[in-house]
């Protein structure tokens, strides 16, 4: 095919190719431009809406990290400082002491300290906490609900798709701005822009 080699043929091909190249660049610019209108300068991170969480214990096993980046957090302001703590003690335990077998937490991550009669303070040792939500469930069903799960952002590696969010049966996971990354119980939410995992439907 000698005509293939003619300069005219090559001109035409490179003309088409250049045109397509420019079109592709423009399309890319369009995509970038449009998404920039829905963008934020900061980063978005994952967080648990504690009001939606049903304490299914998946947070402990589905995180890509071990132990999980999800930890139990204590809203002291909501706590009743109870002597019999639904989050600390095994249900039905006779001994209201600090013995390991009377504790609910599988890793004994909750520390109990005497404040004054009859009040006890409960502190979570987050190094030990595995995010299993057993205590959260206990406190929610028998106490004030002052224990709840949150993603700790010094640990979380901010997966683009959080593996826990993917498996959460309560759709409790939302994306929140990185500079305001907590949804604490008993606090007024400042981040109404939080986006739910399953979108706007």
């Amino acid at each position: 095919m000698p005509e293939d080699k003619s300069p005219k043929y090559h001109d035409r091909r490179s003309f088409i190719k250049n045109g397509l190249n420019t079109t592709a660049a423009l399309a890319l610019g369009g995509i970038a431009g449009f998404t920039i209108t829905r963008s934020t300068k900061g980063d978005m991170v994952w967080q648990i809406d504690p009001d939606k969480c049903i304490q299914c214990e998946k947070c402990a096993i589905n995180c890509v990290l071990y132990p999980s980046a999800v930890k139990c957090v204590h809203a002291y302001a909501m706590c009743g400082y109870c002597k019999l703590c639904g989050g600390y003690h095994q249900p039905g335990t006779k001994r209201l002491d600090t013995a390991a077998e009377s504790q609910l937490c599988p890793t004994n991550a909750i520390k109990r300290t005497f404040v004054e009669n009859p009040y006890f303070e409960y502190t979570i040792d987050e190094k030990l906490c595995i995010g299993c939500a057993k205590c959260v469930k206990g406190c929610g069903s028998f106490g004030n609900g002052s224990l709840f799960l949150q993603v700790r952002h010094d640990i979380c590696v901010n997966c683009n798709e959080c593996n826990i969010a993917l498996n959460c049966p309560a759709d409790a996971w939302v994306r929140v701005p990185a500079d305001n990354p907590y949804l604490f119980r008993g606090e007024v939410r400042e981040s109404p822009t939080a986006t739910s995992e399953s979108g706007d439907v």
Partner: peptide
Amino acid sequence: QIQRFPKPDFESGYTQPGPVKTYPRSV
């Protein structure tokens, strides 16, 4: 939010710890 047990009035001068917030690496 079920407040089953009232907030205690501490007499021993106990101060309640505030919520601890840790942040992701800076933007």
